[in-house]
Simulated scan of single mutants.
Amino acid sequence: MKFKYSPYLVFSFFFLFSFTTLASVDTVATYSASMQKEIKAVVITPKDYNESKDYPVVYLLHGYSGNYKNWIEKVPQIESLADLYDLIIVTPDGNFGSWYWDSPEVGDSKYETYVSEELVEFIDQKYSTIPNREGRAITGLSMGGHGALYLSFRHQDTYGTAGSLSGGVDISPFPENWEMKKYLGTKAENPERWEEYSVMYQSNRLIPNKLKLIISCGTEDFFYDVNVKLHEKLAYNNIPHTFTTGPGGHTWEYWADAVQYQLLFFHNYFEQSK
């Protein structure tokens, strides 16, 4: 499914239903046994949060050079969206440029294990969550968009729905960018590895209709072409997904609009999974 994304329509929808947020925003320190260090995350709980109810969780990943505070600082309206959709939002730290891999080159960079195992376990223990795949979503921007799809494709029993915002979904065209060779080794010396660690090739793992997928990218984004190619590959392989596109570059303005639709998409999935 492909359609043109209208930030103005989504903004109008959000404006009509927005209200003064009473969401709780906490910073938590989680311990990663795989990396033997503490890692911070922001956790947003809705205004009516209480232990007598189980809540769905959306994991929201930051981009390259970012950190766990980016989403709440750049897009503070996600607090109101947590209230509106009655869900928990978690924004973990993915280090400066981990790409959310368990790196074969850097021994203490195991962010696949951290996000999809250690952090999920921590959140399910500390908060009143729906502790199964039907209660979990993951998305992110840029490096985090790659990370969200990479992790969800590899952990289809952990997440029920996933998305990407301007994701670097095929790393092969960018062998000298964003420190990726630090974590994978050079593409020239490790061509198979550069395929294995790319969303484009991990898509072969997908079981049709198991993951509810939404992929968004602006037409002026330098990742637009690779997102179109991923959309075409998924369509060719009969993997149902929603692909939204419209005017926009690799900017917070685009992500602030697009994340609103993705959270609505996840909310609808959670409601249908009850």
Rank of each mutant, 00 (worst) to 15 (best):
Y201Q: 10
R136E: 00
I39F: 06
L263D: 02
D108T: 14
V115D: 00
V169I: 13
S166P: 04
Y55R: 07
D108R: 14
D83V: 05
D93W: 07
G167L: 01
I78R: 01
T186K: 07
I214Y: 04
K126A: 13
I214K: 05
S24M: 11
C217D: 00
L206Q: 06
N70K: 12
L230W: 03
V106K: 15
A188R: 11
Y49F: 14
Y111V: 07
K40A: 12
N70S: 12
L206I: 14
D48C: 08
S128Y: 05
L61N: 02
F223E: 00
E192W: 08
V228I: 15
S103W: 04
K110F: 09
W255L: 05
P175N: 07
S166C: 13
H62C: 09
P131I: 06
R133N: 08
W71T: 06
L213E: 00
D170W: 05
M143S: 03
A29Q: 14
V10Y: 06
H250S: 07
D48M: 11
S98E: 05
H62T: 06
T161C: 15
P240A: 08
K187P: 08
N190T: 10
G135D: 00
Y254F: 15
K187W: 06
K2A: 11
L213G: 01
L16K: 13
D170V: 03
Q156A: 06
T219K: 14
Y5R: 01
Y201C: 05
T158A: 02
E134R: 14
E134S: 14
V115H: 03
M35E: 14
S103K: 01
S109W: 06
E232L: 13
F270M: 05
A188L: 12
D102K: 11
S34C: 10
V75C: 15
E73G: 08
F3Q: 14
S142P: 10
L81E: 10
H241W: 11
G163Y: 01
R133G: 05
V42F: 03
F222G: 02
A33M: 10
A29V: 05
R154W: 03
V169P: 03
L16E: 06
D108A: 12
D124W: 11
T21F: 04
N204K: 13
Y261L: 14
K274G: 08
T129F: 11
A148W: 02
I207N: 12
E73H: 12
T219S: 11
L264T: 07
S32K: 10
Y49M: 10
G246N: 04
K210M: 10
E253G: 12
L87K: 05
Q77G: 07
A41C: 13
V43K: 02
E232G: 03
S65A: 12
Y150D: 04
N95Y: 13
F13S: 12
F14Q: 07
H250F: 11
G147F: 04
T251H: 05
G163W: 04
L9R: 12
A29K: 15
Y224G: 05
V25N: 07
L149Q: 00
F122E: 01
E232M: 08
D48W: 09
L81A: 01
L81N: 02
P175A: 06
